Simulated assay, not measured.
Amino acid sequence: MLDIATPAPDFTLPQGDGTDVTLSDLRGAPVVLFFYPRDDTPGCTKESIAFSEHLDSFAATGAKVFGVSKDSVASHAKFATKRDLTVPLLSDENGSVCEDYGVWKEKNMYGKKYMGIERTTYLIDANGDVAMVWPKVKVPGHAEAVLAAVQAL
């Protein structure tokens, strides 16, 4: 997990439409990165829909919002089309960004341990520094809480 007030690690990742997003190119505006485990699963779908529903409100503040998972660009495109998502989804297939942001963790389900993405959201300020972190996110009300934090910057 990254500490507040530290520089957010730079990256370049492809999004569902095939274009690349480079974090450092977005300086001058806040950026929200919500890391989620997997496309088209119940919690991830609800979270992505919530951020999509509030995308215009985030845009009104100048903030950019991106979902990040290890799913492929093709998976993201299919997920976005199926669920009518408007929030851009970034593909971190090799997991390097997930590791840099400390969200690739050991998880436990039904007594079985495995590695996966811990649902986490980062708010990065206009200077490229971590402004807020939400670890172990619970989906209901989360997008609204992040929007409120962006509006308070």
Rank of each mutant, 00 (worst) to 15 (best):
S69R: 08
W134T: 01
T86Y: 00
T41P: 10
S96T: 15
N127E: 15
D25I: 07
H76C: 04
V32E: 04
G111Y: 13
R83L: 00
K82A: 15
D100P: 03
N108K: 15
T19H: 12
P7N: 13
V146H: 01
Q151S: 14
I124R: 13
V150N: 03
S72I: 08
S96W: 00
E53W: 00
A50N: 14
G95D: 04
D20A: 15
P14L: 13
Y36N: 04
D20F: 10
D25T: 14
A50F: 01
I124C: 10
L23T: 12
S69K: 08
V97M: 09
S48W: 04
Y114F: 15
A149N: 06
Y36S: 09
L23Q: 12
D17I: 03
Y114S: 11
Y36V: 09
P135W: 02
F34G: 01
V139K: 09
V21C: 02
D56G: 04
A149Q: 12
F35D: 11
L23K: 11
F58V: 04
G95R: 01
E118C: 02
A145I: 00
T120Y: 04
E106Q: 15
G62D: 06
V146G: 01
A80T: 05
I49N: 05
G116F: 05
A80C: 07
H76F: 05
M132S: 14
G95K: 02
A143R: 05
D56Q: 08
A145M: 02
T45W: 14
V32A: 03
G95E: 07
K70D: 03
R119P: 07
Y101W: 12
L26C: 08
F35S: 04
A59T: 14
S57D: 15
D56Y: 00
Y114D: 06
T86L: 02
G18D: 08
D3A: 15
S69C: 10
A80R: 10
G128N: 14
T121W: 02
A145L: 05
T22E: 05
A74K: 14
Y36D: 09
L26A: 08
A126T: 07
D39Y: 10
L89M: 15
N94R: 04
L147G: 07
Y36P: 08
V130A: 11
P7Q: 13
D125Q: 10
F58K: 04
K78Q: 12
W134K: 05
P30E: 09
